[in-house]
Measured scan of single mutants.
Amino acid sequence: VGDQVLEIVPSNEEQIKNLLQLEAQEHLQLDFWKSPTTPGETAHVRVPFVNVQAVKVFLESQGIAYSIMIED
C-alpha cells in the first residue's frame, strides 16, 4: 500500500476553509492537484501513505465527502 489520491467534495464554504487549512499543514506533505474553490466541486489531493489515515479521520470528523481516486 502506498500513497493515495483522494477525490474530495466539499459541500459548503466552511468545508472549503477546512480543506485550505489542511493544505497549509506542511508536515502532512499533501499535494493538491486541484484545490477546493467552490462547494460541490471536486478537489484532488495526493496523500503520502504515512498520512492517509490522519487525513481520512480529519475529513470524516468534518463531514467532508471523499473517495479514493487512485490507490498506489
Rank of each mutant, 00 (worst) to 15 (best):
A43H: 07
A24C: 08
Q62N: 14
P39S: 04
G40F: 09
I70T: 12
L59K: 00
V47N: 01
H27L: 07
Q53F: 10
L30W: 04
I68L: 09
E13T: 08
L28F: 10
V9T: 11
T42W: 04
V50N: 11
A65D: 06
I16E: 01
V5F: 11
P10E: 01
G40N: 07
T42C: 08
D72R: 06
Q29R: 12
G40R: 03
A24V: 07
E7L: 15
Q53D: 12
F58G: 01
V1C: 15
K17M: 12
F32P: 02
N12P: 00
G40M: 06
N12C: 04
V9D: 03
L59A: 00
I68E: 04
R46A: 06
S61R: 11
H27S: 11
I8Q: 00
A65P: 13
L22G: 03
H27N: 10
T42Q: 05
E41P: 03
D31S: 13
A24N: 08
Q53A: 12
Q4S: 07
S61Y: 07
N18F: 15
V57A: 12
I70G: 13
Q21D: 12
P10G: 03
Q4A: 12
H44A: 07
V57C: 12
R46C: 09
S35M: 14
I8S: 01
D31C: 15
V55F: 15
R46Y: 10
K17S: 08
R46F: 10
D72L: 14
E23Y: 15
I68N: 03
P48N: 05
T42V: 14
Q21K: 15
M69A: 06
M69C: 12
E13W: 15
A43W: 15
Q25T: 10
P48S: 07
E7S: 14
R46G: 03
V57N: 13
I68M: 06
Q29G: 13
V5M: 10
T37H: 06
N12K: 02
D3S: 14
E26N: 12
P48I: 04
S67E: 06
E41G: 05
N18A: 15
V5E: 05
H27D: 11
D31Y: 15
P10V: 07
V50L: 11
Q25R: 08
A43C: 15
S35G: 11
V55D: 00
E26C: 14
L30R: 01
V9W: 14
P36Y: 03
E41H: 06
A65K: 14
Q25I: 10
L59Y: 01
N51Q: 09
